[in-house]
């Protein structure tokens, strides 16, 4: 009984995912088909690439809202590089470099300026969006070689290459978090920053690395996404950041830092994805979809907060 309750609360997101999954399988005709499930998987590739490292940032006690702006700026720089060099490699490197640079700046300000990470990244978001408009001159940038699209859309064992890349990213972030000294330090800094400092952890360096990783993920995802869509502009949709944070939180990683896991974020991403897919298959108006999504996030976080209150 106790064990059951424990697993229920610890694995809440898995149970929720399973219930929605089974519910849709039995009530919706087209849900449980190889094609639909593959589509769901492939659509999450770019969110997953961001979510792995973003989870590390949140566990370390940080919060990075600038990932959305990085996701917009990176493809603009990347496409400019691609347009002038014609090289896909340079394009991807440029996109990643934008993310890394933004992450380092965020990290330096947060670690040495001692400014709250939410405020810091909110401010740098404005700057990054501004840079995106300046660099693109407000116009749409397009990729010069449409053929390169296959780099992210090619199917390998029936699944797109972008999804495979996401898998690699998730494995790397999982290993970093669970198997390395860096990961332990992330949990320690997020759990009790003073204790971590007194235990000899170089807190500033760790925060800079965490935000750099976060930026790197968003920069790369932005560049890869623009290969898929073949174009980018400064006014593109940056709501991917909301999807990422929602998934991390719904998965059960603590927004206060110190606890969480990569698998939780993966489960959170798919929970929301399956839910949205179900709405679409059942023809629910997208406007209502958003409202329901918002309620689901509140429910997940609320249940978590009640649970942790009861445990103390």
């Amino acid at each position: 009984m106790n064990l059951l309750r424990q697993s229920l609360s610890k694995l809440a997101v898995i149970w929720a995912l399973a219930i929605v999954f089974l519910g849709l399988t039995f009530t919706t005709d087209n849900f449980f088909s190889v094609m639909n499930l593959r589509n769901i998987l492939d659509q999450q590739a770019f969110i997953l690439i961001i979510a792995g490292f973003a989870t590390i940032v949140i566990i370390s006690g940080g919060f990075d809202v600038s990932l959305g702006a990085i996701y917009i700026l990176s493809p603009i720089v990347a496409l400019k590089v691609e347009n002038s060099t014609g090289s896909l490699l340079y394009m991807i490197l440029a996109g990643a470099a934008v993310g890394i640079a933004a992450g380092i700046v965020n990290g330096l300000i947060i670690a040495y300026g001692n400014i709250n990470s939410f405020i810091t990244t909110l401010a740098t978001s404005f700057i990054l969006f501004g840079l995106a408009y300046i660099l693109s001159d407000g116009s749409i940038l397009s990729i010069s070689d449409i053929e390169t699209r296959s780099f992210v859309t090619k199917k390998i064992f029936g699944i797109t290459s972008a999804t495979w890349m996401a898998l690699v990213f998730l494995i790397i972030s999982w290993i970093l978090l669970e198997r390395t000294r860096f990961g332990r330090s992330v949990f320690a800094v997020g759990g009790n920053i003073e204790a971590a400092r007194l235990s000899g952890i170089r807190v500033a360096r760790l925060q800079i690395i965490a935000f750099t990783l976060g930026g790197f993920g968003a920069g790369l995802a932005g560049a890869l996404n623009s290969i898929r869509t073949t174009s980018a502009q400064a006014s593109d949709d940056f709501s991917v950041i909301f999807a990422v944070i929602a998934a991390i939180v719904v998965g059960g990683t603590s927004i206060a830092g110190g606890s969480g896991a990569i698998w939780r974020s993966i489960a959170g991403v798919f929970f929301i994805a399956v839910l949205v897919n179900g709405f679409n298959l059942n023809g629910i108006d997208p406007v209502y979809q958003r409202i329901i999504q918002g309620l689901v996030i509140l429910l997940a976080v609320g249940a978590d907060s009640i649970r942790s209150k009861r445990n103390t």
Binding site: F187, A188, G191, N192, E194, A195, L198, S254, G258, S259
Partner: peptide
């Protein structure tokens, strides 16, 4: 509590 333990670990 403030400088010692990492409670969630």
């Amino acid at each position: 509590k403030d400088q010692g333990i990492i409670p969630a670990r």
